[in-house]
Design a protein around this nucleic acid. Structure first.
Lengths: 205, 205
DNA sequence: CAAGTCATCAATCAAATGATTGATTGAATG
DNA sequence: CATTCAATCAATCATTTGATTGATGACTTG
């Protein structure tokens, strides 16, 4: 994380805030936002509580920091692979793959996300940070649906708005469940594909 | 809630626990589980904190009480109308109507539900109470899907398990969003119907 | 009505917790 | 080397908060 010699001593505010955000996220996964304690975070980072408050003035700001670090994770997720040349259906499939990878490799991300979404309902400041996250995601799905309909891969009678709600709800709902058999996600995605698929097409998938 | 004269004086433990659960649920909607304070509940019920603890020994027990009151609400929801004689598709539609009514008339129920589901991830005791709720709901949807496929109303290639995840996820996801246009729910349900509909059928819906 | 139980409250406790203070240390600057 | 400033910590504060205690008041019952 920093220098190997001189561990945790005199880091820059930026590095500290990053470490603090990471520790906070880990603790949120363990205890939830309600169980998040500044002391615990400080201990995990290896600094004094006062130092924590030096870098992050209040708990409010701390939650915002976490929300923001989550936002960055989401942003990064969506700039990796160039895929503009693919059909909407292909790109949607990649969207499913992306989500599956995240759910598999970094389940904490979705847990913290879920936790913060719950909090956003009451905390306008958090809501403001979270809104663009889902908003953007939703927009991507909606656009892919609309394009996919135009390209004839998706049902012509799809209503993109609620269909996006359905898809995103299904994905988030999946993460909430204690996981079952290992191919549960594959089955869910397959079902989603069939749900939006244009039935007039021949069997290809 | 009780006698008009002699308000709030000397209720039975049963009546008190009901009132406490109601107050707690209202407060959870306002401040979340994390913001739930025994003092606030007592104040809202109109009793002393000590009296609250007399009826509900600990905060743990309090959360369990709330979870349990929620469970009862869900149970009641599912015994009202006799519908065994209807087709699976009709019964599924009624399920959508039921859910829509709840989301419309008693949005707090779903909010508290959502809140507790989040907590259930960390609190095994809560998880135990919540599990049968979703489990039962999921089972109902799964059965209706299977029957509906058999009756030819639903897509023959539906995989009931993930399809139930999709439907339930869509409904819960809907409740999480700040509500948009008034017919948003109708559109969502319509989309869900199309998603599971047997495409070989003529246009009727 | 006397006795006993149930319900209630004012007062208080002890622990947890977010935050502050004032002093200290280390690295850059000139 | 002296100065300055960012980073750090031990100690402490002020509240909040879940819970308890001991006394008092109301029903019920024999």
């Amino acid at each position: 994380m920093s220098d190997a010699y001189a561990p945790n001593r005199r880091e820059s505010t930026d590095a500290r805030r990053t470490a603090i955000a990471a520790a906070a996220r880990a603790l949120i996964v363990e205890k939830g936002v309600e169980g998040l304690r500044t002391r615990d975070i400080a201990e995990r980072v290896g600094i004094n509580v006062a130092t924590l408050h030096y870098h992050v003035p209040s708990k409010e700001a701390l939650i915002e920091l976490v929300a923001d670090s989550l936002r960055q994770d989401f942003m990064n997720q969506h700039v990796t692979r160039p895929r503009a040349h693919l059909s909407a259906r292909r790109r949607m499939d990649l969207e499913f793959v992306d989500f599956g990878e995240m759910a598999e490799e970094r389940p904490e991300v979705m847990q913290v996300f879920s936790e913060l979404m719950e909090r956003a309902r009451r905390d306008e400041r958090i809501a403001e940070i979270m809104r663009p996250l889902i908003g953007k995601w939703r927009q991507i799905v909606k656009n892919l649906l609309t394009e996919g309909i135009g390209e004839g891969d998706y049902r012509a009678d799809i209503d993109a708005e609620p269909c996006a709600t359905m898809i995103i709800g299904a994905l988030i709902g999946f993460c909430r469940n204690r996981h079952h058999d290992p191919d549960a996600y594959e089955r869910l995605v397959a079902e989603l594909r069939r749900a939006i698929r244009n039935p007039s097409l021949s069997i290809e998938d």
